[in-house]
Design a protein around this nucleic acid. Structure first.
Length: 573
DNA sequence: GCCGTTTTCGGCCCGACTGTTTTCAGTCG
Protein backbone atom coordinates (compact mmCIF):
# COMPACT_ATOMS: atom_id res chain seq x y z
CA UNK A 1 0.00 0.00 0.00
CA UNK A 2 1.59 3.28 -1.04
CA UNK A 3 1.49 6.57 0.85
CA UNK A 4 -1.25 7.96 -1.31
CA UNK A 5 -3.55 5.01 -0.71
CA UNK A 6 -2.96 5.23 3.05
CA UNK A 7 -3.64 8.96 2.95
CA UNK A 8 -6.88 8.37 1.06
CA UNK A 9 -8.24 5.97 3.68
CA UNK A 10 -7.29 8.30 6.55
CA UNK A 11 -8.90 11.21 4.71
CA UNK A 12 -12.09 9.21 4.19
CA UNK A 13 -12.17 8.35 7.89
CA UNK A 14 -11.94 12.08 8.63
CA UNK A 15 -14.78 12.81 6.19
CA UNK A 16 -17.01 10.10 7.64
CA UNK A 17 -16.32 11.18 11.21
CA UNK A 18 -17.27 14.68 10.19
CA UNK A 19 -20.60 13.50 8.78
CA UNK A 20 -21.16 11.55 11.99
CA UNK A 21 -20.51 14.74 13.94
CA UNK A 22 -17.55 13.36 15.84
CA UNK A 23 -15.02 15.39 17.84
CA UNK A 24 -13.54 18.13 15.64
CA UNK A 25 -10.00 17.68 16.93
CA UNK A 26 -10.08 13.96 16.36
CA UNK A 27 -11.12 14.68 12.77
CA UNK A 28 -8.28 17.14 12.45
CA UNK A 29 -5.84 14.50 13.68
CA UNK A 30 -6.91 12.10 10.91
CA UNK A 31 -6.84 14.80 8.29
CA UNK A 32 -3.43 16.07 9.29
CA UNK A 33 -2.06 12.52 9.32
CA UNK A 34 -3.48 12.02 5.80
CA UNK A 35 -1.72 15.17 4.60
CA UNK A 36 1.56 14.25 6.25
CA UNK A 37 1.61 10.77 4.75
CA UNK A 38 0.34 11.89 1.35
CA UNK A 39 3.30 14.26 1.12
CA UNK A 40 5.90 12.02 2.79
CA UNK A 41 8.78 11.39 0.37
CA UNK A 42 9.53 7.81 1.44
CA UNK A 43 7.14 4.84 1.57
CA UNK A 44 5.62 4.69 5.05
CA UNK A 45 4.96 0.98 4.45
CA UNK A 46 8.66 0.38 5.07
CA UNK A 47 8.51 1.84 8.59
CA UNK A 48 7.67 -0.08 11.76
CA UNK A 49 5.11 1.23 14.26
CA UNK A 50 7.76 2.99 16.33
CA UNK A 51 9.17 4.85 13.32
CA UNK A 52 5.68 5.81 12.16
CA UNK A 53 5.05 7.39 15.55
CA UNK A 54 7.95 9.72 14.92
CA UNK A 55 6.08 11.34 12.02
CA UNK A 56 4.58 14.66 13.09
CA UNK A 57 0.99 14.42 14.32
CA UNK A 58 0.94 10.63 14.46
CA UNK A 59 0.64 8.90 17.82
CA UNK A 60 -0.08 5.44 19.10
CA UNK A 61 -3.57 4.99 17.64
CA UNK A 62 -2.89 6.34 14.17
CA UNK A 63 0.39 4.44 13.93
CA UNK A 64 -1.49 1.22 14.72
CA UNK A 65 -4.13 1.94 12.06
CA UNK A 66 -1.44 2.71 9.50
CA UNK A 67 0.34 -0.57 10.26
CA UNK A 68 -3.00 -2.35 9.98
CA UNK A 69 -3.52 -0.77 6.54
CA UNK A 70 -0.05 -1.73 5.38
CA UNK A 71 -0.30 -5.31 6.66
CA UNK A 72 -3.90 -6.17 5.76
CA UNK A 73 -4.73 -3.64 3.03
CA UNK A 74 -7.71 -2.48 5.08
CA UNK A 75 -8.72 -0.95 8.38
CA UNK A 76 -11.51 -2.15 10.67
CA UNK A 77 -12.43 1.36 11.80
CA UNK A 78 -12.77 2.54 8.20
CA UNK A 79 -14.96 -0.47 7.40
CA UNK A 80 -17.10 0.17 10.48
CA UNK A 81 -17.75 3.75 9.36
CA UNK A 82 -18.68 2.55 5.89
CA UNK A 83 -21.30 0.34 7.57
CA UNK A 84 -22.93 3.50 8.85
CA UNK A 85 -22.73 5.54 5.65
CA UNK A 86 -22.44 4.43 2.01
CA UNK A 87 -19.15 5.31 0.31
CA UNK A 88 -21.05 7.21 -2.38
CA UNK A 89 -22.05 9.81 0.20
CA UNK A 90 -18.48 11.11 0.08
CA UNK A 91 -19.19 12.39 -3.45
CA UNK A 92 -21.97 14.50 -1.98
CA UNK A 93 -19.61 15.86 0.69
CA UNK A 94 -17.16 17.01 -1.97
CA UNK A 95 -19.67 19.30 -3.66
CA UNK A 96 -18.89 22.99 -3.37
CA UNK A 97 -21.07 24.50 -0.65
CA UNK A 98 -22.08 21.19 0.89
CA UNK A 99 -20.47 20.28 4.17
CA UNK A 100 -20.77 17.47 6.69
CA UNK A 101 -23.80 18.87 8.52
CA UNK A 102 -25.75 19.16 5.31
CA UNK A 103 -24.76 15.66 4.24
CA UNK A 104 -25.90 14.25 7.58
CA UNK A 105 -29.20 16.09 7.31
CA UNK A 106 -29.77 14.99 3.71
CA UNK A 107 -29.03 11.42 4.66
CA UNK A 108 -31.22 11.24 7.73
CA UNK A 109 -34.14 13.36 6.52
CA UNK A 110 -34.32 12.47 2.82
CA UNK A 111 -32.33 9.25 2.60
CA UNK A 112 -29.85 10.84 0.16
CA UNK A 113 -27.07 8.28 -0.35
CA UNK A 114 -25.41 9.53 -3.55
CA UNK A 115 -25.18 12.38 -6.05
CA UNK A 116 -28.04 11.02 -8.21
CA UNK A 117 -30.24 10.83 -5.08
CA UNK A 118 -29.38 14.43 -4.29
CA UNK A 119 -30.00 15.67 -7.80
CA UNK A 120 -33.42 13.99 -7.88
CA UNK A 121 -34.35 15.46 -4.50
CA UNK A 122 -33.25 18.94 -5.60
CA UNK A 123 -35.15 18.74 -8.89
CA UNK A 124 -38.30 17.65 -7.07
CA UNK A 125 -38.02 20.60 -4.71
CA UNK A 126 -37.62 18.42 -1.65
CA UNK A 127 -34.50 20.17 -0.36
CA UNK A 128 -36.33 23.38 0.44
CA UNK A 129 -38.55 21.50 2.88
CA UNK A 130 -35.59 20.97 5.16
CA UNK A 131 -34.75 23.27 8.04
CA UNK A 132 -32.19 25.87 7.04
CA UNK A 133 -32.64 25.25 3.32
CA UNK A 134 -34.47 27.38 0.79
CA UNK A 135 -34.88 27.66 -2.94
CA UNK A 136 -31.54 29.44 -3.34
CA UNK A 137 -29.63 26.71 -1.58
CA UNK A 138 -31.44 24.16 -3.73
CA UNK A 139 -30.40 25.99 -6.91
CA UNK A 140 -26.83 26.31 -5.60
CA UNK A 141 -26.62 22.57 -5.07
CA UNK A 142 -27.93 21.83 -8.56
CA UNK A 143 -25.32 24.19 -9.99
CA UNK A 144 -22.58 22.52 -7.97
CA UNK A 145 -23.66 19.13 -9.33
CA UNK A 146 -23.53 20.44 -12.90
CA UNK A 147 -20.11 22.01 -12.40
CA UNK A 148 -18.84 18.78 -11.00
CA UNK A 149 -20.09 16.83 -14.01
CA UNK A 150 -18.23 19.21 -16.27
CA UNK A 151 -14.97 18.27 -14.57
CA UNK A 152 -15.77 14.59 -14.06
CA UNK A 153 -12.95 12.36 -15.21
CA UNK A 154 -10.49 15.23 -15.46
CA UNK A 155 -7.42 15.32 -13.26
CA UNK A 156 -4.62 17.74 -12.47
CA UNK A 157 -1.52 17.60 -14.66
CA UNK A 158 0.68 16.71 -11.68
CA UNK A 159 -1.56 13.74 -10.85
CA UNK A 160 -1.87 12.44 -14.40
CA UNK A 161 1.87 12.76 -14.89
CA UNK A 162 2.47 10.72 -11.75
CA UNK A 163 0.00 8.01 -12.81
CA UNK A 164 1.47 7.94 -16.34
CA UNK A 165 4.96 7.46 -14.89
CA UNK A 166 3.74 4.70 -12.58
CA UNK A 167 2.03 2.82 -15.40
CA UNK A 168 5.09 3.18 -17.64
CA UNK A 169 7.37 1.90 -14.88
CA UNK A 170 5.05 -1.07 -14.40
CA UNK A 171 5.02 -1.88 -18.12
CA UNK A 172 8.80 -1.56 -18.33
CA UNK A 173 9.27 -3.95 -15.43
CA UNK A 174 7.13 -6.58 -17.13
CA UNK A 175 8.25 -5.91 -20.72
CA UNK A 176 11.80 -4.63 -20.74
CA UNK A 177 13.01 -3.44 -24.10
CA UNK A 178 9.79 -1.73 -25.18
CA UNK A 179 10.03 2.04 -25.44
CA UNK A 180 7.13 3.75 -23.68
CA UNK A 181 6.38 7.41 -24.21
CA UNK A 182 3.70 9.54 -22.57
CA UNK A 183 1.83 11.41 -25.31
CA UNK A 184 -1.50 13.27 -25.51
CA UNK A 185 -2.38 16.08 -23.13
CA UNK A 186 0.20 14.91 -20.59
CA UNK A 187 3.01 15.49 -23.10
CA UNK A 188 1.54 18.83 -24.09
CA UNK A 189 1.51 19.83 -20.42
CA UNK A 190 -2.21 20.69 -20.28
CA UNK A 191 -3.29 21.92 -16.84
CA UNK A 192 -5.89 19.17 -16.54
CA UNK A 193 -6.13 15.94 -18.50
CA UNK A 194 -9.16 13.80 -19.30
CA UNK A 195 -7.15 10.68 -20.03
CA UNK A 196 -3.59 9.42 -20.15
CA UNK A 197 -2.17 8.35 -23.51
CA UNK A 198 0.89 6.12 -23.65
CA UNK A 199 2.68 5.10 -26.82
CA UNK A 200 4.52 1.76 -26.96
CA UNK A 201 7.09 1.63 -29.74
CA UNK A 202 8.02 -1.72 -31.23
CA UNK A 203 6.26 -3.88 -28.65
CA UNK A 204 4.37 -7.15 -29.13
CA UNK A 205 0.59 -7.45 -28.82
CA UNK A 206 1.20 -9.44 -25.61
CA UNK A 207 2.03 -6.11 -23.96
CA UNK A 208 -1.71 -5.50 -23.90
CA UNK A 209 -2.18 -8.47 -21.55
CA UNK A 210 0.36 -6.98 -19.18
CA UNK A 211 -1.37 -3.62 -19.43
CA UNK A 212 -4.89 -4.88 -18.72
CA UNK A 213 -3.54 -6.94 -15.81
CA UNK A 214 -2.24 -3.84 -14.02
CA UNK A 215 -3.10 -4.27 -10.32
CA UNK A 216 -5.02 -1.01 -10.16
CA UNK A 217 -7.29 -1.71 -13.14
CA UNK A 218 -10.88 -1.23 -12.08
CA UNK A 219 -12.43 -1.86 -15.48
CA UNK A 220 -11.17 -2.79 -18.95
CA UNK A 221 -12.80 -0.40 -21.42
CA UNK A 222 -11.32 -1.99 -24.52
CA UNK A 223 -8.73 -4.59 -25.44
CA UNK A 224 -7.16 -4.86 -28.88
CA UNK A 225 -3.76 -5.74 -30.35
CA UNK A 226 -2.73 -2.13 -31.02
CA UNK A 227 -4.99 -0.18 -28.70
CA UNK A 228 -6.37 -0.85 -25.23
CA UNK A 229 -8.08 1.33 -22.63
CA UNK A 230 -8.50 0.80 -18.93
CA UNK A 231 -9.99 2.68 -16.02
CA UNK A 232 -7.70 2.72 -12.98
CA UNK A 233 -8.59 3.24 -9.31
CA UNK A 234 -9.12 6.92 -8.71
CA UNK A 235 -10.91 7.42 -12.05
CA UNK A 236 -7.89 7.64 -14.35
CA UNK A 237 -8.52 6.44 -17.89
CA UNK A 238 -5.35 5.19 -19.57
CA UNK A 239 -5.01 4.37 -23.28
CA UNK A 240 -2.07 2.33 -24.55
CA UNK A 241 -1.24 2.31 -28.27
CA UNK A 242 1.27 0.20 -30.12
CA UNK A 243 3.18 1.36 -33.20
CA UNK A 244 6.08 -0.28 -35.08
CA UNK A 245 9.53 1.22 -34.55
CA UNK A 246 9.55 2.67 -38.07
CA UNK A 247 6.48 4.75 -37.12
CA UNK A 248 7.87 6.06 -33.83
CA UNK A 249 7.89 9.73 -34.86
CA UNK A 250 4.57 9.60 -36.67
CA UNK A 251 2.95 7.85 -33.71
CA UNK A 252 4.30 10.44 -31.29
CA UNK A 253 3.14 13.28 -33.50
CA UNK A 254 -0.29 11.81 -34.12
CA UNK A 255 -1.07 10.86 -30.52
CA UNK A 256 0.38 13.98 -28.94
CA UNK A 257 -2.16 16.17 -30.75
CA UNK A 258 -3.83 18.44 -30.14
CA UNK A 259 -6.61 17.59 -32.50
CA UNK A 260 -6.60 21.15 -33.86
CA UNK A 261 -2.83 21.12 -34.41
CA UNK A 262 -3.02 17.78 -36.21
CA UNK A 263 -5.87 18.91 -38.47
CA UNK A 264 -3.84 21.97 -39.49
CA UNK A 265 -0.74 19.86 -40.04
CA UNK A 266 -2.57 17.29 -42.18
CA UNK A 267 -4.11 20.05 -44.28
CA UNK A 268 -0.63 21.40 -44.87
CA UNK A 269 0.55 17.92 -45.86
CA UNK A 270 -2.28 17.56 -48.40
CA UNK A 271 -1.43 20.96 -49.91
CA UNK A 272 2.08 19.70 -50.47
CA UNK A 273 1.04 16.38 -51.98
CA UNK A 274 1.42 14.24 -48.87
CA UNK A 275 -0.75 12.18 -46.58
CA UNK A 276 -0.02 12.24 -42.82
CA UNK A 277 -1.23 9.59 -40.39
CA UNK A 278 -0.01 7.73 -37.31
CA UNK A 279 2.26 5.53 -39.44
CA UNK A 280 4.14 8.18 -41.34
CA UNK A 281 4.15 10.91 -43.96
CA UNK A 282 3.50 9.46 -47.42
CA UNK A 283 3.64 10.90 -50.92
CA UNK A 284 0.23 10.88 -52.61
CA UNK A 285 0.42 8.88 -55.81
CA UNK A 286 3.23 6.38 -55.32
CA UNK A 287 2.63 6.11 -51.56
CA UNK A 288 6.32 6.35 -50.77
CA UNK A 289 7.16 7.12 -47.16
CA UNK A 290 8.85 10.49 -46.81
CA UNK A 291 9.15 10.62 -42.99
CA UNK A 292 7.88 8.76 -39.93
CA UNK A 293 10.68 7.47 -37.76
CA UNK A 294 11.30 10.85 -36.14
CA UNK A 295 8.97 13.75 -35.36
CA UNK A 296 11.56 16.25 -36.54
CA UNK A 297 11.61 14.62 -39.97
CA UNK A 298 7.86 15.05 -40.39
CA UNK A 299 7.92 18.74 -39.54
CA UNK A 300 11.00 19.23 -41.69
CA UNK A 301 9.36 17.55 -44.69
CA UNK A 302 6.48 20.00 -44.28
CA UNK A 303 8.95 22.94 -44.28
CA UNK A 304 8.50 23.61 -40.58
CA UNK A 305 10.84 23.71 -37.63
CA UNK A 306 10.00 21.13 -34.95
CA UNK A 307 7.22 22.40 -32.69
CA UNK A 308 7.59 21.76 -28.93
CA UNK A 309 4.58 19.72 -27.71
CA UNK A 310 3.47 22.48 -25.33
CA UNK A 311 2.76 24.76 -28.31
CA UNK A 312 0.71 22.30 -30.35
CA UNK A 313 -2.70 23.91 -29.90
CA UNK A 314 -3.14 25.62 -33.28
CA UNK A 315 -2.57 29.00 -31.70
CA UNK A 316 -0.20 30.28 -34.37
CA UNK A 317 2.62 27.77 -33.88
CA UNK A 318 2.48 26.43 -37.45
CA UNK A 319 2.75 29.92 -38.95
CA UNK A 320 5.63 30.70 -36.58
CA UNK A 321 7.38 27.41 -37.34
CA UNK A 322 7.07 28.18 -41.05
CA UNK A 323 9.22 31.29 -40.64
CA UNK A 324 11.44 29.65 -37.99
CA UNK A 325 10.00 32.14 -35.52
CA UNK A 326 9.17 29.91 -32.54
CA UNK A 327 10.63 31.18 -29.27
CA UNK A 328 13.41 29.31 -27.50
CA UNK A 329 11.18 28.24 -24.63
CA UNK A 330 12.15 28.61 -21.01
CA UNK A 331 13.27 25.40 -19.24
CA UNK A 332 13.43 24.53 -15.57
CA UNK A 333 17.23 24.85 -15.67
CA UNK A 334 16.80 28.55 -16.44
CA UNK A 335 15.19 29.20 -13.05
CA UNK A 336 17.61 30.74 -10.54
CA UNK A 337 15.41 31.70 -7.60
CA UNK A 338 12.00 31.17 -6.02
CA UNK A 339 10.17 34.29 -4.84
CA UNK A 340 7.11 32.93 -3.03
CA UNK A 341 7.03 30.47 -0.12
CA UNK A 342 5.68 30.15 3.40
CA UNK A 343 7.08 28.95 6.70
CA UNK A 344 5.91 27.92 10.16
CA UNK A 345 5.60 31.63 10.97
CA UNK A 346 2.19 31.40 9.28
CA UNK A 347 0.67 28.38 7.54
CA UNK A 348 3.78 26.61 6.23
CA UNK A 349 4.85 23.22 7.55
CA UNK A 350 8.61 23.84 7.65
CA UNK A 351 10.68 26.59 9.28
CA UNK A 352 12.62 29.24 7.37
CA UNK A 353 15.95 27.52 7.80
CA UNK A 354 14.61 24.20 6.43
CA UNK A 355 13.06 25.98 3.45
CA UNK A 356 16.33 27.80 2.70
CA UNK A 357 18.43 24.65 3.07
CA UNK A 358 16.12 22.67 0.79
CA UNK A 359 16.02 25.37 -1.89
CA UNK A 360 19.82 25.60 -1.74
CA UNK A 361 20.10 21.82 -2.13
CA UNK A 362 17.72 22.01 -5.09
CA UNK A 363 20.16 24.33 -6.83
CA UNK A 364 18.38 27.66 -6.39
CA UNK A 365 20.65 30.62 -5.74
CA UNK A 366 18.06 32.68 -3.85
CA UNK A 367 14.60 32.56 -2.33
CA UNK A 368 12.13 34.97 -0.78
CA UNK A 369 10.24 33.96 2.35
CA UNK A 370 6.80 35.50 1.91
CA UNK A 371 4.49 34.61 4.76
CA UNK A 372 0.89 35.79 5.02
CA UNK A 373 -0.35 39.11 6.40
CA UNK A 374 -2.80 39.55 9.26
CA UNK A 375 -6.05 39.53 7.27
CA UNK A 376 -5.53 35.81 6.78
CA UNK A 377 -6.27 35.10 10.43
CA UNK A 378 -6.80 31.41 9.83
CA UNK A 379 -3.22 31.20 8.60
CA UNK A 380 -1.94 33.12 11.64
CA UNK A 381 -1.04 36.04 9.34
CA UNK A 382 1.59 38.57 10.42
CA UNK A 383 0.84 42.11 11.59
CA UNK A 384 3.40 44.89 11.02
CA UNK A 385 5.37 44.19 14.16
CA UNK A 386 5.58 40.43 13.62
CA UNK A 387 6.34 40.92 9.91
CA UNK A 388 9.39 43.05 10.66
CA UNK A 389 10.64 40.77 13.42
CA UNK A 390 10.20 37.81 11.07
CA UNK A 391 12.08 39.69 8.32
CA UNK A 392 15.04 40.16 10.66
CA UNK A 393 15.16 36.42 11.34
CA UNK A 394 14.90 35.68 7.63
CA UNK A 395 17.72 38.06 6.72
CA UNK A 396 19.92 36.48 9.38
CA UNK A 397 20.00 33.37 7.17
CA UNK A 398 22.13 35.19 4.61
CA UNK A 399 25.66 33.85 4.66
CA UNK A 400 24.55 30.46 5.97
CA UNK A 401 24.67 28.78 2.56
CA UNK A 402 27.43 29.58 0.09
CA UNK A 403 26.34 31.62 -2.92
CA UNK A 404 22.77 31.68 -1.66
CA UNK A 405 20.65 34.71 -0.73
CA UNK A 406 17.45 34.95 1.27
CA UNK A 407 15.06 37.85 0.75
CA UNK A 408 12.61 38.92 3.43
CA UNK A 409 9.20 39.39 1.86
CA UNK A 410 5.52 39.16 2.57
CA UNK A 411 2.41 37.93 0.79
CA UNK A 412 0.18 40.84 1.70
CA UNK A 413 -3.58 40.53 1.36
CA UNK A 414 -5.43 42.87 -0.98
CA UNK A 415 -8.41 43.98 1.08
CA UNK A 416 -11.93 44.23 -0.29
CA UNK A 417 -11.47 47.83 -1.45
CA UNK A 418 -7.96 47.41 -2.87
CA UNK A 419 -6.07 48.73 0.15
CA UNK A 420 -3.23 46.56 1.36
CA UNK A 421 -3.41 44.72 4.66
CA UNK A 422 -0.16 46.20 6.04
CA UNK A 423 1.00 49.80 6.38
CA UNK A 424 3.27 51.29 3.71
CA UNK A 425 6.12 52.00 6.10
CA UNK A 426 6.21 48.31 6.97
CA UNK A 427 6.09 47.18 3.33
CA UNK A 428 8.88 49.68 2.54
CA UNK A 429 11.22 47.91 4.94
CA UNK A 430 10.90 44.52 3.22
CA UNK A 431 12.83 43.19 0.22
CA UNK A 432 9.81 41.99 -1.75
CA UNK A 433 6.04 42.38 -1.51
CA UNK A 434 3.58 40.03 -3.20
CA UNK A 435 0.02 41.34 -3.16
CA UNK A 436 -2.71 38.69 -3.36
CA UNK A 437 -6.48 38.37 -3.16
CA UNK A 438 -7.62 35.72 -0.66
CA UNK A 439 -11.20 36.78 0.07
CA UNK A 440 -14.37 38.04 -1.59
CA UNK A 441 -13.73 36.26 -4.88
CA UNK A 442 -17.28 36.85 -6.02
CA UNK A 443 -17.11 40.60 -6.65
CA UNK A 444 -18.32 41.70 -10.08
CA UNK A 445 -15.76 42.46 -12.75
CA UNK A 446 -15.69 46.22 -12.23
CA UNK A 447 -15.21 45.95 -8.47
CA UNK A 448 -12.63 43.17 -8.67
CA UNK A 449 -10.64 44.91 -11.40
CA UNK A 450 -10.66 48.24 -9.53
CA UNK A 451 -9.62 46.43 -6.39
CA UNK A 452 -6.59 44.85 -8.07
CA UNK A 453 -5.65 48.01 -10.00
CA UNK A 454 -5.71 50.01 -6.78
CA UNK A 455 -3.40 47.50 -5.13
CA UNK A 456 -0.99 47.76 -8.08
CA UNK A 457 -0.76 51.51 -7.51
CA UNK A 458 0.90 50.95 -4.15
CA UNK A 459 4.61 51.74 -4.75
CA UNK A 460 5.79 48.83 -2.61
CA UNK A 461 3.99 46.09 -4.50
CA UNK A 462 6.50 44.09 -6.58
CA UNK A 463 4.44 41.06 -7.59
CA UNK A 464 0.75 40.26 -8.03
CA UNK A 465 0.28 36.76 -6.58
CA UNK A 466 -1.99 34.11 -8.21
CA UNK A 467 -3.75 36.88 -10.15
CA UNK A 468 -7.11 35.20 -10.82
CA UNK A 469 -7.48 33.08 -7.69
CA UNK A 470 -8.82 30.10 -9.60
CA UNK A 471 -8.57 26.57 -8.23
CA UNK A 472 -8.48 23.91 -10.92
CA UNK A 473 -11.54 21.61 -10.99
CA UNK A 474 -12.90 23.55 -8.03
CA UNK A 475 -13.22 27.31 -8.25
CA UNK A 476 -13.63 29.51 -11.30
CA UNK A 477 -11.22 32.45 -11.73
CA UNK A 478 -12.26 35.76 -10.19
CA UNK A 479 -13.93 38.15 -12.63
CA UNK A 480 -10.92 40.38 -13.16
CA UNK A 481 -10.19 42.19 -16.43
CA UNK A 482 -6.79 40.67 -17.01
CA UNK A 483 -5.81 42.84 -19.94
CA UNK A 484 -6.28 46.02 -17.90
CA UNK A 485 -4.39 44.48 -15.01
CA UNK A 486 -1.51 43.37 -17.27
CA UNK A 487 -1.31 46.79 -18.90
CA UNK A 488 -1.21 48.51 -15.50
CA UNK A 489 1.33 46.01 -14.22
CA UNK A 490 3.56 46.78 -17.20
CA UNK A 491 3.27 50.51 -16.56
CA UNK A 492 4.02 50.25 -12.83
CA UNK A 493 6.71 47.59 -13.21
CA UNK A 494 4.79 45.02 -11.17
CA UNK A 495 5.49 41.40 -12.12
CA UNK A 496 2.60 38.95 -12.53
CA UNK A 497 2.99 35.55 -10.93
CA UNK A 498 2.65 32.13 -12.45
CA UNK A 499 1.85 30.24 -9.27
CA UNK A 500 3.12 26.64 -9.30
CA UNK A 501 0.71 25.05 -6.83
CA UNK A 502 -0.59 22.08 -8.78
CA UNK A 503 -4.24 23.10 -8.42
CA UNK A 504 -3.62 26.79 -9.11
CA UNK A 505 -1.28 27.22 -12.10
CA UNK A 506 -2.40 30.82 -12.00
CA UNK A 507 -1.85 32.73 -14.31
CA UNK A 508 -2.72 30.04 -16.82
CA UNK A 509 -1.02 29.67 -20.21
CA UNK A 510 -3.34 31.96 -22.17
CA UNK A 511 -3.31 34.71 -19.53
CA UNK A 512 0.47 34.56 -19.10
CA UNK A 513 0.90 34.90 -22.86
CA UNK A 514 -1.45 37.87 -22.93
CA UNK A 515 0.34 39.51 -19.99
CA UNK A 516 3.68 39.10 -21.74
CA UNK A 517 2.29 40.58 -24.95
CA UNK A 518 1.07 43.58 -22.96
CA UNK A 519 4.59 44.14 -21.70
CA UNK A 520 4.22 42.78 -18.17
CA UNK A 521 7.08 40.90 -16.56
CA UNK A 522 6.39 37.49 -15.06
CA UNK A 523 7.75 35.46 -12.17
CA UNK A 524 7.34 31.71 -11.66
CA UNK A 525 6.98 30.86 -7.99
CA UNK A 526 6.21 27.67 -6.08
CA UNK A 527 4.14 29.23 -3.25
CA UNK A 528 5.54 26.23 -1.36
CA UNK A 529 4.06 25.57 2.07
CA UNK A 530 6.59 22.83 2.75
CA UNK A 531 10.03 21.67 1.68
CA UNK A 532 8.44 18.96 -0.47
CA UNK A 533 6.45 21.48 -2.51
CA UNK A 534 9.58 23.23 -3.83
CA UNK A 535 9.69 20.66 -6.66
CA UNK A 536 6.48 22.13 -8.09
CA UNK A 537 8.55 24.70 -9.98
CA UNK A 538 8.39 22.37 -12.99
CA UNK A 539 4.62 22.84 -13.39
CA UNK A 540 4.90 26.62 -13.52
CA UNK A 541 7.66 26.30 -16.10
CA UNK A 542 5.33 24.08 -18.13
CA UNK A 543 2.66 26.80 -18.02
CA UNK A 544 5.25 29.37 -19.11
CA UNK A 545 6.28 27.17 -22.02
CA UNK A 546 2.65 26.83 -23.06
CA UNK A 547 2.53 30.65 -22.86
CA UNK A 548 5.35 30.84 -25.42
CA UNK A 549 7.73 32.43 -22.91
CA UNK A 550 11.48 32.53 -23.30
CA UNK A 551 13.72 32.73 -20.24
CA UNK A 552 14.17 36.50 -20.39
CA UNK A 553 10.43 37.12 -19.98
CA UNK A 554 10.65 35.67 -16.48
CA UNK A 555 12.38 37.69 -13.75
CA UNK A 556 13.56 34.81 -11.61
CA UNK A 557 15.73 33.42 -14.39
CA UNK A 558 18.16 36.16 -13.40
CA UNK A 559 20.72 36.07 -10.63
CA UNK A 560 19.80 37.98 -7.49
CA UNK A 561 21.99 40.98 -8.33
CA UNK A 562 20.35 41.35 -11.74
CA UNK A 563 16.92 40.74 -10.25
CA UNK A 564 16.96 43.47 -7.59
CA UNK A 565 17.03 46.49 -9.92
CA UNK A 566 14.12 44.98 -11.87
CA UNK A 567 11.85 44.80 -8.82
CA UNK A 568 9.34 47.62 -8.81
CA UNK A 569 10.64 49.16 -5.57
CA UNK A 570 14.09 49.69 -7.08
CA UNK A 571 13.02 50.97 -10.47
CA UNK A 572 14.03 54.47 -11.38
CA UNK A 573 11.30 57.00 -12.13
C1' DG B 1 -7.04 11.93 17.59
C1' DC B 2 -2.15 14.39 19.25
C1' DC B 3 0.70 16.76 22.30
C1' DG B 4 3.04 18.35 26.38
C1' DT B 5 3.14 19.03 30.77
C1' DT B 6 3.63 23.42 36.17
C1' DT B 7 3.26 14.86 33.71
C1' DT B 8 -2.27 11.95 32.39
C1' DC B 9 -5.84 16.11 31.44
C1' DG B 10 -6.97 20.16 28.90
C1' DG B 11 -5.98 22.72 24.82
C1' DC B 12 -5.99 22.22 19.99
C1' DC B 13 -5.78 29.21 14.51
C1' DC B 14 -10.87 31.70 13.82
C1' DG B 15 -13.09 35.45 10.87
C1' DA B 16 -16.00 36.29 6.80
C1' DC B 17 -19.65 35.15 3.99
C1' DT B 18 -24.14 33.12 2.59
C1' DG B 19 -28.65 31.94 3.05
C1' DT B 20 -31.47 31.38 6.19
C1' DT B 21 -33.15 33.53 9.72
C1' DT B 22 -34.76 37.67 13.16
C1' DT B 23 -30.13 35.84 15.95
C1' DC B 24 -27.84 31.87 13.63
C1' DA B 25 -25.92 27.56 11.40
C1' DG B 26 -23.10 25.90 7.97
C1' DT B 27 -19.24 26.35 4.85
C1' DC B 28 -14.90 27.95 3.46
C1' DG B 29 -10.24 29.01 3.74
Amino acid sequence: MDNRAIARVLGEIADLLEIRGDNAFKIRAYRSAAETIGAWPDPVARLDAKQIRELPGIGKDLAAKIRELVETGGCAFHAELLQQFPATILDVLRLQGVGPRTVALLYSALGVRSLPDLEAAAREGRLRTLKGMGSKKEALILKAIQEREKDLGRHLLADTTRVATEVIDYLKTHSPGVELIPVGSVRRGCETCGDIDILAVGGEAALMDVFTAHPQVERILGRGDTKSSVLLDGGYQVDLRLVPAASRGAGMQYFTGSKAHNVALRERAVQRGYKLNEYGLFRIGDGEEVAGAAEEGIYEALALTWVPPELREDRGEIQAAERAGLPRLIAEDDIRGDLHMHSTATDGRDDIESMAAAAHRAGRSYIAITDHSKALAMANGLDEERALAHAARVRALNGRFPGFSVLAGIECDILEDGRLDLADDCLAQLDLVIASVHSRFNQDEAAMTDRVLRALENPYVDVLGHPTGRLLLKREPARVHLEQVATAAARFGVALEINCQTDRLDLNDACARLAHERGARLVISTDAHSVNALVNMRWGVTVARRAWLAADAVLNTRGVEDLRPLLRRHRQG
